[in-house]
Amino acid sequence: MPDVTRIPTPHSYSAAVAAGDLVFLGLHRGSGATFDEQLHDAVRQVAATLEQCGAHLHDLVKVQVWLADIADLPAMEHAFVEHFPADGFPARMTATTQFWDEDCRVMLEGVAHRGAGRP
Rank of each mutant, 00 (worst) to 15 (best):
A79W: 02
G88F: 06
L57R: 15
D87C: 02
W66F: 12
E102F: 09
P10M: 09
M107L: 08
G32K: 03
P2E: 01
T49E: 04
D101A: 09
D72C: 03
D36V: 11
H28I: 02
H11K: 11
T94G: 01
I7G: 00
V43D: 00
R105C: 02
G30T: 07
I7F: 11
Q64G: 15
L73P: 00
A116G: 11
E77G: 05
G26Y: 10
C53W: 01
H113N: 07
R114D: 00
E82V: 06
D3L: 07
E37Y: 00
A47P: 01
D72S: 10
H56C: 00
W100G: 15
V17S: 13
S31R: 13
A91D: 15
Q64I: 11
G110W: 00
A79M: 12
D36W: 00
A16F: 11
M76G: 02
T97I: 07
G115P: 05
R29W: 06
F84S: 02
R114N: 02
T94V: 14
D41H: 04
F24Y: 15
R118G: 09
S12E: 13
A95D: 09
G115A: 07
Q38A: 02
D69F: 06
E109D: 13
P10S: 10
L22D: 07
F24Q: 13
A112G: 01
L39M: 15
W66P: 01
A16R: 05
E77H: 12
A116H: 15
F35R: 03
S14L: 11
D36N: 06
M1Q: 03
V111S: 00
P2V: 02
Q64A: 14
H28Y: 02
A19D: 13
R92E: 10
A71H: 07
C104D: 11
G54A: 07
